[in-house]
Write a protein that binds this DNA or RNA. Structure first.
Length: 208
DNA sequence: AAGGGACACAACCGCAGAGCC
DNA sequence: AGGCTCTGCGGTTGTGTCCCT
């Protein structure tokens, strides 16, 4: 049995107060991101290290963009999701100033629905079978307000069962064909640290 | 104006991988 | 080699806000 990450009785949970935020920012500004486990005590916070890390990464980091996603960011998320599936940290790594949590939330609340409305299965980025019927074409080339071009593809003579098996990760990396055949993304970042993108030209410690 | 449902987003939880001893 | 700790990730939940009736 794994030890809990902290003594839950002694830690606060739920929304962060302004004072807590300030303590965390002050501490990291002075000392940088160090050992998250010991940070709360050192910073005078009644939080577990995990909670501090999440708060910093998703909300307090000074290089965060926040605000609405631009259309090109939306397109990039959709394309990257088609390739990578739910690897939110990798996707976020290609979007400077965005966090994996933010991307994940945006996907779940906006983009998923958007794709569904366009007749695209958000799990595998294929046009839904019933919409491929000749009488009900989904107007693919102009279907999106984001400028994303979705091309109708001829489904190979693959049994539908295959779809189920390959879509569990939400990625069509292994698929021969995909709803986004025009993708030409440089994915050489596959070995990049998710946090590198926003650190490029920026030291690990955000303030010195 | 009030109530209820839908939506958006912050935060938590549990798991897995990496590194260290 | 194996166990332990720490960190990071993805899934899920909780809560506040908005919108519709």
């Amino acid at each position: 049995m794994r030890k809990p990450c902290c003594n839950k009785q002694d830690t606060n949970k739920g929304a962060w107060s302004k004072q807590e935020d300030q303590k965390l920012v002050d501490y990291i500004t002075k000392h940088g991101e160090g050992c998250w486990r010991s940070l709360p005590e050192a910073a005078g916070l009644l939080r577990c290290g995990k909670s501090c890390r999440l708060r910093w990464i998703n909300y307090l980091r000074p290089d965060l963009k926040r605000g609405n996603f631009a259309e090109d960011e939306e397109d990039l998320i959709i394309k990257l999701h088609a390739l990578l599936g739910n690897r939110w940290s990798l996707i976020a790594g290609r979007l400077p100033g965005r966090t994996d949590n933010e991307v994940k939330n945006y996907w779940n609340s906006h983009l998923r629905r958007k794709l569904i409305n366009m007749g695209i299965d958000p799990n595998n980025h294929r046009l839904k079978q019933n919409l491929l019927r000749p009488h009900n074409p989904p107007n693919p080339a102009s279907a999106t307000s984001t400028g994303l071009k979705i091309q109708t593809i001829q489904q190979p003579t693959k049994p539908p069962v295959d779809n189920e098996q390959t879509s569990d990760a939400g990625s069509c990396l292994e698929d021969d064909q995909c709803a986004l055949p025009d993708l030409n993304l440089d994915l050489t970042m596959s070995v990049r640290s998710p946090s590198i993108a926003h650190v490029e030209g920026n030291p690990k410690h955000y303030e010195s």
